[in-house]
Write a protein that binds this DNA or RNA. Structure first.
Lengths: 341, 341
DNA sequence: CTGAAAGCGCTTACAG
DNA sequence: CTGAAAGCGCTTACAG
């Protein structure tokens, strides 16, 4: 079965002995065209299964109604939730979405960004690769089309940025621990100063300060790769201390879960001896036992918001540089890992 | 900052006092063009930041090098892993990917399929919505462009289908339980006869038959929505039986995890009293304790394979109907939930 | 080795 | 109310 080509305006017009222009106008409900003609044209179009070639249309108008999305890794639940939000909001507004992964590779990221602009996307949504140094190239693209950053952002790129209230979220998490009566609160964070890690750490510090709790360097642990395994490893260090912490705030759920596993091994009671709080509200946080207290990040909303701002900029371009940062509110979900009875 | 328009061939040609054709050919390394000219052109192109408008190019050649992907829900780990594979393989071969969700809605699915063809995608990869009745519309599209189905497939659509060896995988899982000495093996499956559930159930039956273990209707439980909650609920039914099963095979990890939670509540020893096996190898399966024995489905490979077959059909269209089913091998990952000491 | 011209499918200002 | 023509940016068969 060989593939049929799509019906074109030309074919319709020939069939009807009308001009292409008239057919086009009839299909687009142009007021100039008589009702009779319109009906005739539409009927045949339906019959011949005509679908407009959006490519040709977009090509002409310089608008593709396609948005590009670049993320480090699509198969992280949080990321795919954001993308879900992006797709839904975009479709609602008549846009389609092309998705690409940078795999946290700076070069790949730029490459994707470039091919996307080549494809004529109307705008780009992007979450930056871990070590994005080469901001120059991003700026070049930003000269041509609107870009909105989300989740992993950078102040070096002057554009709209959609993030969660990292600092405040961390503050709330740590405050919650303090309210439980915890005084020696450890943090497990990233070594490298990613935007997220930095902000969350700042929130941790602010909470301690505000409640006059001394900041102890020994309780501040960092790791390159904030994984479950490293969470476990760092928790082991904490456990082996002469004076153990009475709470652990891990800046990701995975690290928190690693910590819980380590605590289990030493039969340390959670939360009585050591409470644990994570960050993300991943599915895992309800599977682990005790269930993990964590910060819920509304990925869907982040995605939708980013799309809204991007389309705004596409539709009504301004001459001003958009550098606003939009903060999406998170909420702390308290579960057994910090529920004192 | 107003957005610059992209540099075009025309601009380059004017600048160089060459014809558009020559510039085009120079950029594409056409053998006719002198080296000198080529270098001159390429240098200016770089200088003026020229990027070819792939839209125009694709428009002309009737090839967009865009693949459409439609899945029920992108934010399931298994799905996003498949998509990761799709994106990577597609990019490797110079294709870009547009992704859409059907949300398991038949109508939405068709709608997406249609707008995708309108966008001129070269082919479509799709995992069907749960209750896909309206196969007619899909067939219409199949008349125009190649479609490859994956994961959720249907024999009613004559095209290449990429799936895992569902039946064999289930057989292996149940055989494993039998080898542990289990004799009363319950199954938790879907009520509705989805392709996956049906095949897995068939594998369960074949294993029992092959080892001369009687099939007991009471041990065959079904649910509409195969979720954690329902896994728990059905496990409770099994637990309340006079003669309990000694193993549970749940056709999804979530249901298996629900079952484990139920067993925990009744302090039933896993796997000694009741062993549990799931299906998917989701992250959760290592978070729950005891860690869950489960079937690993190589999502990445499914995605890559589907892309390969699709591009094959795009590049060399045949007049034959492609109805082959490609089975991707899974493997059983044995963990504590079925590890007898 | 280079150029003028046609054409991909569509929209739209201009004429009538 | 309808049509002929130009143009979006590119490639390529045809001429020279």
């Amino acid at each position: 079965m060989s593939k049929k080509r799509n019906t074109t305006l030309k074919e319709l017009s020939k069939e009807l002995s009308l001009s292409i222009s008239t057919v086009s106008r009839a299909l687009n409900d142009h007021p100039d065209i008589s009702l009779e003609t319109k009906e005739k044209v539409k009927k045949l179009a339906k019959q011949m299964n005509y679908v407009p070639n959006l490519f040709a249309r977009g090509f002409r108008s310089r608008e593709t109604h396609i948005l590009g999305v670049i993320v480090p890794n699509i198969s992280h639940l949080f990321t795919s939730t954001i993308i879900k939000g992006i797709i839904e909001e975009a479709e609602l507004r008549g846009y389609r979405v092309i998705i690409s992964e940078s795999n946290n590779d700076d070069t790949k990221q730029i490459e994707m960004l470039n091919t996307m602009t080549q494809f004529g996307v109307d705008g780009v949504l992007m979450s930056l690769a871990r070590k994005t140094k080469d901001v120059e190239e991003v700026l070049k693209v930003l000269n041509r089309i609107p870009i909105v950053l989300f989740d992993k952002v950078s102040s070096k790129i002057p554009c709209t940025q959609v993030v969660i209230n990292e600092e405040e979220a961390a503050f709330n998490a740590v405050e919650h621990l303090i309210e439980l009566g915890k005084k020696r609160i450890a943090i497990i964070k990233e070594t490298e100063n990613s935007y997220n890690s930095e902000k969350r750490f700042a929130g941790y510090l602010r909470a301690l300060n505000q409640y006059d709790i001394p900041v102890r360097d020994k309780l501040i642990l960092s790791t390159e790769d904030i994984s479950l395994g490293n969470g476990r490893r760092l928790a082991n260090i904490l456990i082996s201390m002469k004076k153990r912490p009475d709470a652990i705030f891990a800046i990701t759920d995975n690290a928190a879960i690693g910590a819980i596993k380590a605590l289990h091994k030493f039969k340390i009671k959670i939360p009585d001896e050591i409470a644990v709080v994570g960050f993300s509200n991943s599915i895992n946080s309800t599977i682990i036992s005790p269930a993990l207290t964590t910060v819920d990040q509304p990925g869907d909303k982040i995605g939708r918001t980013a799309v809204r701002f991007l389309i705004e900029e596409i539709v009504s371009p301004t001459n001003e540089v958009n550098t606003k940062t939009v903060e999406i509110k998170t909420s702390l979900i308290v579960r057994d890992s910090s529920l004192m009875v």
